[in-house]
């Protein structure tokens, strides 16, 4: 079964961004540039945080608007990117209401979650879970 990320308890997020650093570290680099997961304050840190993950939609709007099929639906939900087909139009970025399609301005290509679950392994407060698509729905939505 295909897996995806779940934000199961956003109230426990302390904004440490360890998940973002973990995502960037997959490529062997430091910082948070290129992270496919996003943690940002909900309008000042006193209000807590918004954690943006790819929900692995069954019918992903980001893939629907891709003119070259560079973003193709993944079996079981979500998408896969075929960068060699991407023309950098940015439609996918605009189509995701959550902002889960991150834009790489240097390469002019989207950065989408690859559903590896590494970020969840580095969340110290169990905000994130990595589980099969369709599970955990009650807890996350």
């Amino acid at each position: 079964m295909a897996k995806r990320l779940y934000v199961i308890d956003v109230d426990r997020c302390v904004g440490c961004q360890s998940c973002m650093f973990a995502c960037a570290r997959r490529a062997g680099a430091g910082g948070t540039a290129g992270s496919r997961i996003g943690v940002r304050s909900a309008g000042g840190m006193r209000k807590g945080f918004i954690v943006v993950v790819c929900r692995a939609c069954a019918e992903p709007p980001c893939a629907r608007v891709c003119p070259t099929d560079a973003l193709a639906p993944r079996e079981g939900g979500g998408v896969r990117l075929h960068p060699e087909l991407c023309v950098g139009c940015g439609n996918c970025r605009d189509a995701c209401p959550f902002g889960a399609v991150v834009w790489d301005a240097v390469e002019a290509k989207p950065l989408v979650c690859v559903y590896c679950g590494v970020c969840a392994a580095y969340c110290p407060y169990d905000v994130l879970a990595f589980d099969e698509v369709g599970r955990n729905v009650d807890a996350s939505e």
């Binding site: 960037a24 570290r25 062997g28 680099a29 430091g30 540039a33 580095y122 110290p124």
Partner: peptide, 26 residues
């Protein structure tokens, strides 16, 4: 504000040392 990637010389060793420190911290 910045978007720079921070390069490392040895990614495998970097992840290993990172994990040791992260585990200790948590």
């Amino acid at each position: 504000a910045g978007t720079r990637t921070l390069p490392v010389a040895d990614p495998v060793a970097y992840r290993r040392e990172y994990d040791a420190l992260f585990r200790a911290a948590t």
